[in-house]
Amino acid sequence: MKQLVKYIVRISFTVGILLIAGCSGSKPDNRAVYLLLDTSGTYTEELQKAQVIINYLLATLDSGDSIAVARIDSGSFSEKDIVAKATFDLRPSTANDQKRLFKQQIDTFVANVKYGSRNTDITGGVVQASDFVNETQAGDKYVLIFSDLEEDLQKGHVRDFPIDVQGINVVALNVTKLRSDNVDPRDYKKRLLAWQDRVEKGGGQWRVLNDLERLERLISYQ
């Protein structure tokens, strides 16, 4: 019997060491997504599409992942603009409950948005978003900008500085064309290029996804 106990202790010790060795190489593949919703002017009409994106994100994100949805208004560098945020619990059932609550908050927000903001502070929103996703210490970080990317700053607001989006995937969604773009389509391209340049100089990866039927390209799967 003593010998058996000895064997068991030895095996447990070996398994323990293996487990500890395994733990050291744990995989940090949780994701953090921050979605910026443009609520300026006529873009509020596009919010129904944003709901589809949020629902897709909720269905895709898993336990341990983080999500936040914030609006872009006249001054977006503020926590007040965050509509809903959540880091999903490790237990799948609790995570499902969190997702339900999140969806409810978004539905309420979309239903209550009547008038758009006067100005559009995208840079402030992006800075706020990068702070959020960096705080989560996630393996994959995403900042999704649901906007026409036309920045219209309030007088006195300073936003012409380089943004730090190191290691963050910045994805522009549903970048609609403005009336002026129809007059000169180069304006649209210039706008996109300007944002791409800004993001890439800040150390981030830039992408544009206008076709919302291809949402599977939005974030990586686990």
């Binding site: 190489g25 336990s63 799948p92």
Partner: peptide
């Protein structure tokens, strides 16, 4: 395997598993 994530969490990894 799936309900076990309710007990030990669904996002922690040991190595690649």
């Amino acid at each position: 395997a799936m309900p076990m994530s309710e007990m030990v969490g669904g996002s922690s990894y040991i190595g690649e598993m």
